[in-house]
Structure formats: structure tokens, C-alpha cells
Design a protein around this nucleic acid. Sequence first.
DNA 1: TTCGAATATTCCTGTAAAGGAATATTATGA
DNA 2: TCATAATATTCCTTTACAGGAATATTCGAA
Lengths: 106, 106
Amino acid sequence: MDEDHTAVFAALAEPSRMRIVSLLRGGPLTVGQIAERLEIRQPQASKHLKVLQQAGLVDVEAEANRRHYRLRPEPFRELESWLAGYRELWNERFDRLDDYLRTMED
Amino acid sequence: MDEDHTAVFAALAEPSRMRIVSLLRGGPLTVGQIAERLEIRQPQASKHLKVLQQAGLVDVEAEANRRHYRLRPEPFRELESWLAGYRELWNERFDRLDDYLRTMED
DNA sequence: TTCGAATATTCCTGTAAAGGAATATTATGA
DNA sequence: TCATAATATTCCTTTACAGGAATATTCGAA
């Protein structure tokens, strides 16, 4: 339990990186395209992409001069399963289950 | 879109805070109980709880001397809905939808 | 009202990380 | 082989933040 999502959370805690991840939902993009759309300088884009890559959030495919970055599905699946451990906290169905269990206690 | 989950992600990116959140799944705990179970000093526990509180992840109920911290469901709901925006990236059902759409393109 | 338990806050220090600017690297096409 | 586009890396500076230690605060009980 608890695993190690800290790298993923840390990566997503930075606004530019969050925007990169959001951008990449539309499909792979090159470093230049990302820098342009986010209005940041290319070196910063490269640095952020490196962090995202080390966190496992993106991977790269090289094509000639360019590098196409794209989202990896795995960390999102892991986030979902991590979040599932908290589902009883907020999920309506679990609320009803709680009510039911409380009823049983009487 | 994108909203502002950065405070939540930043809060969860710290291992001790992640452990506090995990601990609190079992129900509200006092600062002292948290410090004891995590084997950290009380001031650090208080500081981490402050960060968690400012991120909206926990709230407090004062009872005499003690303060009971507990998880708030809202940020977890928001995480879930944020994550939903990425579901087509990893969800099997969406994969099948993709296949279907590609078929339509021929 | 004073004491002690529980908690919060402050001050200090070290460290990690972000942005800017410059430079290095890599691959393509002429 | 050279020039150029695309990207990565390095160096520097500034800032944010975590932990430690000490201290302040708050509340209930005697």
C-alpha cells in the first residue's frame, strides 16, 4: 500500500507540467510545439519533459530531428487504483453502504 | 479546464503527508496519534497537517485540548473528475471505442 | 490561578528545484 | 563535410520548503 506515487504527484504539482500533460491528451507533440503552445522557452520545455519522463508520465519517440512526446497510460491507471482506496470516503454508494452497516449495528 | 489541483498534488508529493492521508482513511486522529504512528515529531506533524488543511485535504474538529483531523471528501472527488478527463487514454472501453472509430474511417 | 498536556508557531539551516542565458548535441539535407 | 533546425544540457541565481530545536498558545483540571 501507499506505493510510490510521489514522483507523479511532484511532477503534476508544477503548473507548466500540468499544462503539458493536459496538452498531450490531444496526441503526441514535439518539444517545439509544446514550447510554442505554452509560451515557454524550449529549454524549459525540455526540462519539464525530462521530469515528466522520469516520473513515467510520458515517453518519447524520436523521428529524425524531432522528438515526439506522448502520455503513458500506466501512471493514470495507478492513480485511479490509488484513488480507489479512498472511494469509500466520497462515493455515494459507499455512503449508502455505511448507512446499511450502521443499521446492522443496532 | 485544468482547474487548480496543484496545491493538492504538491501536498501529496511529500511522503509524510501521503502517509498521514493514508492513515486518516481509518477515521479522524489527533496530532499526537499521527506523530506517534508515523514516528515523526509533533511539530512536523502539525506543519504537515497545516499544509494538508490549506490544500483542502483535511479539516479539524477541536475537542478540548485536542484537535481531530479528518479527510475531506471533496478533493478526492475533484481528483476523480480530473482523472476522468484522461480516461480515454487508458480505459479499455475507450480503447474499443477507438478501434471502432478507426474502422469508421475506412 | 496555576500546572501540565496537546498543539501551533517561530527561527534557523540545508537542500532541491525553477527560470534565464548560453552552449552542447544530434540528425538532416545540400 | 558543413550549415542548420530541433532538442538537450550546463551553469548560475533565486526561492520554496523540509527538518530540528526552542518557544508560544490553548484548554481543562485541581
